[in-house]
Amino acid sequence: MAEPALALSPLTSPAEQAVLNADYGRLAGEARLLPVKVTAFYAEKLAAELAALGHTEGPLHRVVYPSRARLSQRAPGEVADFVDDRANMKTASKAIVQKYADRVLFLATPLCAAHCQYCFRQDVLSEMHGDDPADLSDKLDALVDHVRAQPAVREVILSGGDPLTLSPDALHRVLARLQGLDQLHSIRLHTRCAVFAPQFFLKGEKYRLLAGPRLRLVHHIVHPYEVCGAVADLLARLGGLGVRQYNQFPILRGVNDDAGLLALHLRRLDEMGVRNLSIFAPDPIHYSAAFRLTLDRLFALHDRLSAETPSWINATALTFDSPLGKFRREHLVSRDRAAGTALFRHRGRDILYHDLPAALDGPGDPATLLWRGDTV
């Protein structure tokens, strides 16, 4: 006999969340989405959030666990891979992606410490998880050959997956090979490990490798409550070594879509010596509608930041991504509200962007988003 369906209330209980997790697990296998994966370190934050709220609609839960809207909402124009990583893979190695003449992206690993529900690279990473992993030395050889063949390349961006999940030896090998390329002005590492698993930095003292010449560390911290004492200590340790630390993050419905929260988040990062580079609009990929905002609301939040905060906060850019690379709201050419589309022009080419229907959008509740009662 089938189990009776759980009655759904406006707020999701832990029992209802377990049903959503099971439903999502089945969907993930069919739709090439990443499975739920949460570290014990992050789970402690989730437990505190659940104890305070009594439900799983809190911002940190939405980061790593599926919501009802994640499973049910779909929006026009969704695709599997909006940034079209595959079309920009310039060699036989799937690990090398290039959109710009002066920059190369290296997918050092498909693995992450935990999985973000809003990840824009789910389709590609799901595919890479199923492949036999190439030897890192082979991938590194291909990367070095590719960079040397293009004198215009000045930066290599290490992403994935998360490069901080590499072993100390593997990370050392990657950085040593790249630091041996005099043409590079910058080597950038993007990571969520600071908030998911700060111990990954400490293993084999990997954090010391990040203080090398031309290195820049870019965190992806999406909410102020991701920075607990252990994370703050790690950021301070990195800063004490002279590591250049930056941050960038997406603006996510139900997670951080509030001007006061954004100002608080950016101010705290600045106080810890972390410079925020940009706030991203989530890509219109399959099953992303639960996190997206309309362009009108994105622009309004960005306008409030610009009007109500000092320059070291409001200098952060509102950015979109595309197969042609990053573009900004300043590149907006026209909008067709009836069709729900916007036309941006970037690098001499048009980008058609499908806006989120207003009926699917709704601002997160500040009392839930900032459940500790913080004020700006």
Rank of each mutant, 00 (worst) to 15 (best):
E3L: 15
V218P: 10
L360M: 07
I285L: 08
R328F: 14
K90Q: 14
T39D: 05
F201C: 06
E271K: 14
V376P: 04
N314L: 03
A259K: 00
Q248T: 02
P163Q: 06
F249C: 07
L184G: 05
N88F: 01
T319M: 12
D169A: 15
P168Q: 09
W371P: 02
I221C: 06
D233Q: 15
R62M: 02
V274L: 11
K94P: 11
A152C: 06
A113F: 00
F200L: 15
L20N: 03
Y42W: 12
L202F: 08
T368R: 13
H265L: 14
L20P: 06
I313A: 01
L217P: 01
P10Y: 06
R208H: 14
Q122L: 06
L343Q: 10
L241M: 13
I96S: 05
R337H: 10
E155R: 00
S288A: 15
Q199H: 14
A52K: 14
V124Y: 02
L34F: 01
D169F: 07
L105S: 04
L261G: 03
S186D: 12
A69Q: 09
A48C: 07
A92M: 09
A317H: 04
D233K: 13
L166R: 00
G130D: 12
L269V: 01
G130K: 14
A152G: 00
Q248H: 07
K326P: 00
D296I: 04
R173D: 05
A170N: 15
T341C: 09
L20K: 01
R347T: 07
A80E: 15
K90T: 15
